[in-house]
């Protein structure tokens, strides 16, 4: 894995169900590797500071801001990006509820909501807010996003009954 003098290391990342060999530097963020090396540009840079959540992905089942994680920490972990979601209920709900306008924050919001509905199918308002307040949407008034996430949570509950 380690080469002498070169700052690059070859690692394998598990992204969207595929194993991807990639050369990384220890200082590369996961966001940078996903976008620039793997061409997965659905995750967006909005602040590169962990403030806006536009780069949110799913790492081992949990929502993670990919600008706050080094790619060197990622081998051995299962990463899902927006490109890895195929026709999930939360994606449909975002369309149905008009939960986006410009679309730039949408990948991050959907990935955050996806982790929420997967991990906390019984989430109450307090938990939903705690999860979703880490992302910023500048176009909507959040009411549409609330409708979208709650529609998925409640339909999951109905399925369980």
């Amino acid at each position: 894995m380690k080469t002498s003098s070169s700052p690059f290391r070859e690692v394998s990342l598990h992204v969207n169900g595929e194993i991807k060999p990639v050369l990384i530097k220890p200082s590369d963020t996961l966001l940078y590797i996903l976008r620039v090396k793997l061409g997965l540009t659905g995750s967006k840079p909005g602040c590169l500071n962990g403030d806006c959540g536009a780069c949110t992905v799913n790492v081992d089942g949990m929502a993670m801001k990919s600008c706050l994680m080094f790619a060197i920490e990622a081998p051995g972990k299962r990463i899902i990006t927006i490109e890895g979601l195929k026709g999930t209920p939360i994606q449909h709900a975002f369309i149905k509820e008009f939960a986006f306008q410009c679309g730039y924050c949408t990948s991050g919001f959907i990935m955050n909501c996806y982790s929420l509905v997967e991990n906390y199918p019984d989430a109450n308002d307090e938990l939903i807010t705690e999860m979703l307040e880490s992302n910023i949407c500048r176009c909507t008034g959040y009411q549409e996003i609330e409708n979208a996430v709650k529609s998925v949570l409640s339909s999951n509950k109905n399925l369980e009954k």
Binding site: G42, P45, T81, E83, I95, Y104, T106
Partner: peptide
């Protein structure tokens, strides 16, 4: 009628392309 946005699918799948997504 509340017709869905024409670019809706692109925006919920990460396929929507913005300027900084373009690299060569």
């Amino acid at each position: 009628k509340s017709v869905y946005r024409k670019e809706a699918v692109d925006k919920v799948t990460g396929e929507a392309i913005y300027t900084n997504d373009i690299q060569s």
